[in-house]
Nucleic acid binder design. Sequence first.
DNA 1: CAGTGGTCTAGACCACACT
DNA 2: GTGTGGTCTAGACCACTGC
Lengths: 266, 266
Amino acid sequence: MTSLPQSSSVLEAHPEGVAPGVAVSSPSFSPLYQQIKTLILKSLQAGEWRPGEAIPSEIDLAARFKVSQGTVRKAIDELAAENLLMRRQGKGTFVATHAEERVQYRFLRLTPNQSASGQPEVAKRVFLDCKRMPAPADVALALNLPAGATVVEVRRILSFAGRPVILDDIWLPGHLFEGLTAERLSEYKGPMYGLFESEFGVRMIRAEEKLRAVVADESVAPLLGVKSGTALLSVERLSRTYGDQPVELRRGLYRTDDYYYRNELS
Amino acid sequence: MTSLPQSSSVLEAHPEGVAPGVAVSSPSFSPLYQQIKTLILKSLQAGEWRPGEAIPSEIDLAARFKVSQGTVRKAIDELAAENLLMRRQGKGTFVATHAEERVQYRFLRLTPNQSASGQPEVAKRVFLDCKRMPAPADVALALNLPAGATVVEVRRILSFAGRPVILDDIWLPGHLFEGLTAERLSEYKGPMYGLFESEFGVRMIRAEEKLRAVVADESVAPLLGVKSGTALLSVERLSRTYGDQPVELRRGLYRTDDYYYRNELS
DNA sequence: CAGTGGTCTAGACCACACT
DNA sequence: GTGTGGTCTAGACCACTGC
């Protein structure tokens, strides 16, 4: 990879300001804006700017990295496309946050059968359980934890319009979530990922979901208010932070009589 | 919207070549590259370039539209991001096609439980039915057709590894698919959307899916080789061409014992 | 080699938000 | 007005492809 200092020195050798071209003819060439992107990413990960805060202006960043504004711009463009940054014309570029979001649940794709108003109405959350325990083998594997590591297990129910719709089992690495209790979960207003972000410094930036259809058994049917034998949508979500590190495994069961899971393809 | 001719005339008034700014202070301002994007889109829709073919080079397009290469570039960037065009460094920019694709089914999100090799192995297709009929009310509504318009109804089964996995019911506007028969569907090698594209000039560029969990009844269970009461993933897909016009409604039932529906969130 | 897309720069000006 | 992101340009050079 072409290192940044190299590029700068090349730049200084051309004081007339014409782009000298940054690539040294080399194996595995990386464009300047990608290197800038990586540097910004590192600052985000290091917490140099907090979620919701503005990052320095493009001009400032260009000066800091000794590149043109256009190059910084392209780096920020990609980070904004990945929902890590938010651009607001006339105001600045801000670190994305789960706390002050236009939609309650950014990762929840459930939509009511009726009413085209996008997200379902306000949810009511009930936490049934929250305990620390040794990670089950499959959970440890998914979260990339050593066998038997401590995890926090949370069980909760999400209700819309007064009826239970989602039963979630959630596992979090214990060492990242010291002091997480059902009480703190219940008290916090706003999405759970907002709490994780502000209280534990863990930011979910990407997730993969595996969807299957399953039949409700006696252990879950009553919790969702359905009969055994009802079909439920099983949603297994693995959420990741910076560096694609997995930090949450979630197994959800969704009632899909009044709601559906919406997806867009292109 | 700022019209293109206006911009050009402004341009010509500044022969020194410095960007004069294109926007007239006006309500509903549209940037130049958006206008270029719209023009390219119109050419695509009109079939000026066929799927798989190269479009003119950025320099040629810049000359045609009397804008800078950078402006054309930004327009093409967005179209490529929407999977309407494919860029290939050193070769050119190509019209996206369903025919010569690296994956068999671009819109199919099914993945085997084992084997991380992405898409499922080669599919076997069996067409159970293909007939013209008056559109059911809900189908006509979804496809934006007048009540009672003719549609083509197709029923088919997709099998992987010798076992049936997907039962699809498909409806297509009759007037766009004259002469579509089960035989032509069976004969065609490659994805169905490739056939639609090359034989009927209909290109699917975007789709929305609604996912639900349902229980298999006696009418579908035998076709998928499962018992009645098994949970199946119901996938309703509405596919659209240019201008967001809906041109295909598809209701699929997926077995999700050996496969799952994969989705990425960010 | 020429032609294509890809990167980078510098500079000008517009649209928007706050003061 | 000042400062921010957003658009547009012109020009140079790099990386990749194929003749």
